[in-house]
Amino acid sequence: MKNPFRKKSKGKSISKKARQRELRNVAASFAIIDEFSRRNLIFWQVKNRMLLIEESLAMVELGLGAALFEGFLKKVCDWQNFKLINEAYEQKRIEIEVAAARKAQEERGAPLTDADVLRIRQHARSFMEQIPLEQLPNLIREFDILIIRASATTADSATEENGQLLAVGHYDGEKLEMAMYDDVKSSLVSSHGSDED
């Protein structure tokens, strides 16, 4: 995920207005993707590193061309990684605040008031350090793509058996490979059959 706060290297600095414009663009993109998610047009299976896209949205995005579809996938990946980074920071914040409150409780030897706990937590939060992205193993760098029918009841119910799966693909951050499910069905079925033998 590109860091919009970092200045460009090699002596070129980004103006304040350019940074603000870039942040507005990122925020607008994330707001649109949030709305797609709320309307169940996209769905992430984070554990499986799989993005499910409902067919109406997929048709619109694919209709814009390969380059813009890849740009859409990058934005959706950045949006999901942003959520994962926020979750990691929230977890770290809670750990730091709880540790600081416990330490203060032990030092004082008497119960802390709610105001004391709030003040201690706010103070502890000011010492939070940045988490290196390399330490976040669940960040998504490549993922599989499934395009499912609009009539699929749930994302989990969209399977090849019930005909709700339209297309499959893989995106590694550089290269996008997509195929209609019916076109690759026989090779996928035969590869699964050979694994079971």
Rank of each mutant, 00 (worst) to 15 (best):
I145T: 05
R119C: 04
A115V: 06
T154V: 09
I94M: 10
A152Y: 09
I120W: 00
E107W: 02
A110P: 01
I94P: 00
I148W: 13
D144A: 14
I96W: 00
A99P: 08
I145M: 05
I145D: 04
F143I: 11
I96D: 00
E142T: 07
K92D: 10
E107C: 02
M128I: 06
Q122R: 10
F127M: 05
M128F: 01
T113C: 02
K103D: 07
R141L: 13
R119K: 14
A152R: 15
L118R: 15
K103W: 00
I131C: 08
S126W: 01
L118E: 14
M128N: 03
V98K: 14
D114C: 04
Q105F: 11
E106T: 07
E97V: 01
L118G: 04
D144I: 12
R102W: 15
D116L: 02
P111A: 09
Q91Y: 10
I120M: 00
E97D: 00
P132C: 11
R141I: 15
Q105K: 15
D144W: 08
I147N: 08
R121Q: 15
A152W: 05
E134L: 11
L133T: 12
I145K: 05
L136I: 11
A152F: 09
R141G: 11
A101S: 09
K92P: 01
T153H: 11
I147R: 07
P111V: 02
R102E: 13
L136Y: 06
I131Y: 03
E142M: 05
F143S: 09
Q122S: 08
I131A: 06
P137C: 03
L133I: 14
A100I: 01
R108C: 06
L139D: 05
